Simulated assay, not measured.
Amino acid sequence: MHNNHLYAAIGNIVHVIDTTSFTLLDTFNVAQTSSGSVRSITFSNGYIFIAHRDKKIRVWKLTKNKGHQHIAMLPTLEDRLQHLCLPRNYVNTRRHKKKLWIQHYDVVSRLAVINKKLICSVSWDKYMKIWNVGDFRCVQSIKAHDDAINDIVVSADGEIFTGSADGKIKIWGSVFGRYGLSAMLEKHKTASVNALALNEDGLMLFSGASDRVIFVWSKVKGSDGMVLNGVLRGHYKAILCLINVRDLLFSGSADRTVRIWRCDYKGKFCCLKVLDGYERPVRSIAVDWSETTLESKGRFNVRVFSESSNGVIKISTIEV
Rank of each mutant, 00 (worst) to 15 (best):
Y105G: 08
W131E: 02
V304A: 04
S109D: 06
A72K: 14
I17T: 08
L294H: 03
L228T: 02
L242A: 01
N229K: 15
S253C: 11
V113W: 11
F250T: 07
N194P: 01
L275C: 09
N12W: 10
S251T: 04
F250A: 08
K143W: 00
L100Y: 08
I71P: 09
V193C: 10
K116M: 01
T257Y: 04
I260M: 13
S253A: 13
K117G: 04
V193R: 12
R280Y: 07
H104F: 03
L84H: 10
W172Y: 07
F215G: 11
A51S: 15
G134Q: 15
D264E: 02
F28N: 10
N65D: 15
I114F: 06
G46I: 08
E159Y: 02
D18R: 02
T293P: 00
Y127V: 02
R95I: 08
V227F: 15
A286T: 07
F28L: 07
V38D: 05
N199P: 07
F49N: 06
V175C: 05
N301Y: 01
M184L: 10
K66Y: 14
T93Y: 05
R283E: 10
S290V: 11
R58V: 01
M73V: 14
R39M: 12
I160H: 10
N12V: 06
R53F: 03
W60I: 01
E186P: 00
F28R: 09
H145A: 07
L196C: 03
I260Q: 03
S21P: 00
G267K: 11
K168H: 10
V312K: 15
T257L: 04
H235D: 03
W101P: 07
T23Y: 01
R94S: 12
E319G: 03
D151S: 15
I114D: 04
D264H: 02
K64H: 12
A31G: 13
S316C: 12
E186F: 00
D166K: 10
